[in-house]
């Protein structure tokens, strides 16, 4: 007759002010690094921030944040542990690094389960690290999290942007709010992405130059926050906070 978990999701997110879904049509564009750094940057500004990694088959934010020794507590559901001030939730607490080969229906079920049992409490921003592509996770976010706003990440590559164009077209067609597009890993001057984004009527939030020091900072948050990448994300965080809280 009915899946009881779905009806409680809205209630679980009641005290979350803004949901930012960091997404892209393509993998490898830097979503997880942007989602993690954006969360840290917003928390640094004094906001209460949650980070939820829903890339269930390939979670990676726990590696970026070095969050492998924490676990949630049980209290009428599940309360995410704090990692560098963030309320941090990931399937890694349950899969413990084992490969989790999930088909679409399993991805949906795992997402519904975690949305139904996780208690975020008072939260200004819940940043979601989405898996790549336009599949179950995107469709489920749209279906289940009515307050989701999408933050779309691309690289300067025409191939990456082509997938972003499709994702953005879907979101526009479904009237889902898009905060804007970030161009990551920029290696040379080119107006191509900005022009294309603006042609679609979307906001071009800014560009992040390719940062060769970033790989070394993965797993060391202090180092990460000192990178040029993080400086750029902090500027974007300011813009995103002003834009979304003003909506």
């Amino acid at each position: 007759m009915a899946d009881p978990r779905v009806s409680v999701i809205e209630d679980r997110l009641k005290k979350v002010n803004k949901v930012l879904s960091v997404s892209s049509g393509k993998g490898g564009v830097g979503k997880s690094l942007i989602a993690s750094t954006l969360s840290l940057a917003l928390a640094d500004k004094g906001y209460e921030v949650g980070l939820f990694d829903i890339d269930f088959t390939n979670p990676s934010t726990h590696i970026i944040l070095n969050a492998e020794s924490v676990s949630p507590t049980e209290e009428n559901g599940v309360i995410p542990p704090r990692v560098r001030g963030l309320k941090y939730m990931s399937i890694i607490y349950y899969s413990s690094g084992h490969v989790s080969p999930l088909r679409g229906v399993d991805v949906s079920n795992a997402l519904i389960e975690l949305l139904a049992i996780t208690r975020w409490g008072e939260t200004d921003f819940l940043v979601i690290d989405m898996p790549p592509g336009i599949g179950d996770a995107v469709l489920d976010m749209i279906r289940l999290v009515k307050k989701a706003n999408f933050l779309v990440v691309t690289t300067p590559s025409k191939l990456a942007f082509e997938t972003v164009r499709k994702l953005a077209s879907l979101l526009l067609e479904m009237r889902i709010p898009i905060i804007g597009v970030i161009e990551n890993m920029k290696m040379r001057e080119s107006p191509f992405i900005q022009e294309q984004v603006e042609k679609m009527g979307l906001r071009f939030l800014g560009e992040i130059p390719f940062d060769y020091s970033l790989e070394e900072a993965i797993g060391d948050v202090n180092k990460l926050l000192k990178t040029m990448f993080a400086q750029k994300v902090k500027e974007l965080a300011e813009k995103i906070a002003l834009q979304t809280l003003g909506d």
């Binding site: 269930f56 599940v78 399937i91 607490y93 349950y94 899969s95 413990s96 084992h98 490969v99 989790s100 080969p101 999930l102 088909r103 229906v105 399993d106 991805v107 079920n109 795992a110 389960e113 975690l114 049992i117």
Partner: peptide, 25 residues
């Protein structure tokens, strides 16, 4: 306990007893 919280996580630990595949429904 992990399966208790997220039943889909069974795919990370359980394998088909006959062929060893994690691809089960």
């Amino acid at each position: 306990e992990a399966i208790h919280f997220v039943p889909e996580i069974a795919h990370a630990y359980i394998r088909c007893p006959r062929c060893g595949s994690p691809d089960f429904e």
